[in-house]
Design a binder for these strands. Structure first.
Lengths: 340, 340
DNA sequence: CTGAAAGCGCTTACAG
DNA sequence: CTGAAAGCGCTTACAG
């Protein structure tokens, strides 16, 4: 019932080998022969069985996209762009989530689920420990890491420390002296996470400007969601009512901070300034000042690096994109009465 | 180099047929034999080749997830939940986007890209025309539609008309009489889209209460993003400065509306109320009043329906989830001076 | 430029 | 309960 390569071969009067070569545009097929085959295939509505072709060739034409949780904006945006890039190149995108809903602990990556199913892998925002890295290696396909650096692999991302510094400098330039920080919690599975680097950026910048950066100004959460940012901000404001600005490690946390500040009857951008990092799509309606990273570009680029690796270009690449300060309404000078 | 079923057979001293049966837990294998096989497989670290097993069995153990654009919150949340549900059942999720960035026109669905790759398909928020439906049918696998109803297929969603009515009634109860609407544009590919039904809900409810629902109160956009909501609201306010409330067809549009209203120096929830539909994660920090739909449940349920269909339960199901009014800060009574 | 044939690594009637 | 063997539908040296 379904048409096979043999049917095409019969109709065009050649062997299946020739059909295979002709259809894939391989060299060494006569012009006239190719024509014939193409016509026959079209007439029969032939589509090669991807699974048979995978078994025979050892290539799956699909890519694994591994990430913590694709429902969050940053991940889904990267995935979207990567998927489109892969599809244009004839590859399918197989998504694989390792959720961390409950906090820093997440499920371990098991290569077993992906072995023999993908030609390459993209890993987003996940640091792999020794064991997971061994699993990854056992897949035997190239991998590129996005957001998190992993030794021995290509990497696409931003300079998280710089991004944080950029955010802090903006606040400092406006006159802020007591700057709180909402950070992502360090966790054992991911000691070099972006959140960690962003915290370092905050600390180093405040230190450089001789400003306070004690632990009491830093409030850490497990995952960097708006609701965690909200709760963290309430704690932070209870502890340090003297802060005039908050630098959130992500835009979503910044949005939660805004909610908490407003609930106290304070005006965001006047009583307390808030700056985020990421460049979230919804930052604009929020009026959120932020340091934006080029998310879509990272998705496309990471996919391109993976594609090149599949084609044999295994050279390790590190591609760091610049970030951009976007000034909107949530940051202003500190309120006159509260400058020390 | 990679271990095959034959290696396991040899080590355990049985045939490959027995290994295959034992490993898959099929009946008709001796207890002791099964033991032996399991041990051998474990000792060798055997993982069956998914592509070989697919070719032989005709089942791929993966599901196609077709949607417009997975970077948007609603889609990515559904995908996330569906993927997790599928993975637990031993299925991979193959995502397939048909972007509509530029407006209502999108790429047509081509079955060719998916044929032989999936055991079932989930379609989100996409209406398939005759031609696409034929393509889908040619895939020869069960499909379930989420958000959009498609004749002849199982469907998981909400009652969009009711959701809109619920939102309108809330505004009317508070005393609003001139209620604008931000709607998603009807497009030829998708005449029965949720946005269309939501608009109908708005119209019918206002009519029932003898309130104005002329076209000048309705502002349609191509895709329902925050920035389109922002622009639409500006046009709406220019044309109808007398409105006291806006019902947006999606939360993202509502967020854009809030931005536009604030830019005019008006207070959201006092001068102009705004209500959305969806229950977006970021509605809370926005203080957005909305009619929420259970997004995660829909994702899980749709996946379960697909899984059952794969197992032979082809009965058509229609599962409609209730929506819930969530009162927050963007809706209040109309300003006293402006009630007619 | 083209074909015959082996091989990819499983699963599944069919026999016993 | 178990095995021999065909078959799934391609691709790829190898010969010519």
């Amino acid at each position: 019932m379904t048409v096979r390569i043999e049917d095409v071969a019969r109709l065009s009067g050649v062997s299946t080998a020739t059909v295979s070569r002709a259809l894939r545009g391989l060299p060494g097929v006569g012009g006239r022969t190719r024509e014939l085959v193409l016509q026959a295939a079209k007439a029969l509505g032939y589509t090669p069985s991807p699974t048979a072709s995978s078994l025979a060739s050892g290539r799956t034409h699909s890519i694994g996209l591994i990430q913590p949780d694709m429902s969050r904006w940053f991940f889904s945006t990267i995935l979207e762009c990567a998927e489109q890039t892969f599809r244009k190149a004839g590859y399918d995108a197989l998504v694989y989530s390792l959720p961390d809903y409950l906090g820093p602990k997440r499920q371990r990556f098991k290569a077993r689920d992906l072995v023999g199913k993908v030609d390459a892998v993209l890993v987003l925002s996940l640091f792999f420990d020794k064991q997971e890295e061994a699993e990854l290696r056992s897949l035997g396909v190239p991998a590129v890491f996005v957001s998190v650096r992993q030794k021995g692999y290509s990497h696409v991302g931003i300079d998280d420390g710089q991004a944080a510094a950029q955010a802090c400098r903006h606040l400092i330039t406006l006159g802020h002296k007591t700057i709180g920080h909402l950070s992502g919690q360090t966790n054992d599975l991911c000691p070099f996470a972006p959140s960690q680097r962003r915290r370092d950026g905050w600390k180093q910048t405040l230190t450089r400007f001789n400003l306070e950066c004690s632990d009491s100004l830093d409030e850490a959460v497990t995952i960097m969601t708006a609701s965690n940012g909200y709760l963290a901000t309430k704690r932070l404001l209870d502890r340090r009512p003297d802060i005039t600005a908050i630098m959130a490690s992500s835009d979503e946390m910044a949005m939660g901070a805004i909610q908490a500040i407003r609930e106290r009857g304070l005006a965001v951008g006047r009583d307390i300034s808030v700056i985020g990092i990421d460049g979230h799509d919804l930052g604009r309606p929020f009026g959120l000042t932020t340091v934006a990273q080029p998310v879509r570009k990272q998705g496309v680029t990471a996919a391109e690096v993976a594609l090149k690796a599949i084609e044999g270009d295994l050279a390790l690449k590190t591609i760091i994109f610049p970030t951009t300060l976007i000034e909107r309404a949530t940051v202003g000078p500190p309120p006159a009465g509260r400058i020390r």
